[in-house]
Amino acid sequence: MGDLTYLCDISTREVRALPPARPKFPVHLHRGMRSFSALGFHPVTRRYKVMKTWVSNNLNHAGEVITANKILTLGTNSWRKINSGPINFPCGGSVCINGSIHFLTLDLMSNKIIVAFDVETEKFRTLALPDGAPNQVHKMKLIAFGGCLTVLDYEHLEDENTMPMYVLEDYKNRVWMERPIVLPHSWKEDLSRSEEFHVSSVRAGEILLAPKVTAGEVYFLSYDVEKGTLKKVQVHGLPPSLLRSPVIIACAPIGYVHSILALSEV
């Protein structure tokens, strides 16, 4: 029995299990093995593909992390093995922009790099972080902002209320633009009850902050970059068991591509 991966259609709330998949690692490498999946979309071919990666805690003879990758084209029923790329376990989720899935991960020197996987050619490549972005910052995330690949550095947000944002405005020529974000002090009103928080982007022009929420109330904070305004967005319909004690809503970067196809048709 292999690892199961599920697709969820946000519009219809359908959930579909993909065929199980598993890497051909030797048995001794299975201990501590982790896996993650990412959905990619190519705007020219209009094809959706799911990439699944397994990462072992072990290193090969060259001191590199041992990984395995498979891919499934939606509409088919089988996984195909693809060549591994320079990818460790990602620091956060994935962002699909311009037909490529992007991850923030670590190189062999534990420096952060961006790895891109082309959905059509099924090849990996690396992108350097923008100038000025420290490559060893712990709190850093990739998001989609205004249709552009964006790096958020929120290492000092709690102390200084500032968050440098680097936007890849010219993807082809790798032109990054730095945009400082300064949040109002009110965003930290409930942070005293939190050990950590998460950042993401869901709607164009807005950054989502998810602090550890209080018992009985689940909400996000949405910051509008253009207007400089902050608003609370409550979440309803969660099971009562989640409301008995504070919980953390983990926001991975969301690359949502709307499709009118039902999951049963893909």
Results as ranks from 00 to 15, higher is better:
E14C: 06
E14F: 06
V15F: 04
L18S: 06
L18Q: 02
P20D: 14
P20Y: 07
A21E: 15
P23H: 12
P23Y: 04
K24H: 14
P26S: 05
V27F: 13
R31T: 11
M33K: 11
M33Y: 02
S37I: 01
A38T: 11
A38I: 04
A38Q: 06
F41D: 13
F41K: 09
T45E: 10
T45W: 04
R47P: 10
Y48G: 03
K49W: 08
K49C: 05
M51G: 10
K52E: 09
K52C: 08
K52M: 09
T53D: 09
T53A: 15
W54M: 01
V55G: 05
S56A: 14
N57L: 15
L59G: 04
L59T: 06
A62Q: 15
G63D: 07
E64R: 08
E64A: 14
E64D: 15
I66G: 00
N69G: 05
K70T: 01
K70C: 02
I71P: 01
L72V: 07
T73V: 10
L74I: 07
T76M: 08
N77Q: 07
N77A: 09
W79R: 09
R80Y: 06
K81A: 06
I82F: 13
I82M: 08
I82H: 05
S84G: 08
P86C: 12
P86R: 14
F89R: 11
F89Y: 15
F89S: 11
P90E: 07
C91L: 14
C91R: 07
G92T: 09
G93T: 06
G93K: 11
S94W: 00
V95W: 00
N98Q: 06
N98E: 11
N98C: 09
G99Q: 02
I101D: 03
H102L: 03
H102I: 02
H102N: 07
F103A: 04
L104E: 06
L104T: 11
L104N: 08
T105Q: 07
L106N: 02
L106G: 02
D107V: 04
L108T: 12
L108K: 15
N111H: 13
I113C: 10
V115S: 00
A116V: 12
F117E: 04
D118H: 05
V119Q: 01
E120S: 13
E120F: 00
E120M: 14
K123M: 14
F124Q: 03
F124N: 05
R125T: 10
T126I: 02
L127D: 12
L127S: 13
A128C: 15
N135C: 02
V137E: 15
V137W: 01
K141H: 12
K141R: 11
L142M: 04
I143G: 08
A144H: 04
A144M: 03
G146S: 12
G147K: 02
L149N: 05
T150Y: 01
T150Q: 02
L152T: 09
L152I: 08
L152D: 01
D153M: 06
E155F: 00
E155T: 05
L157S: 00
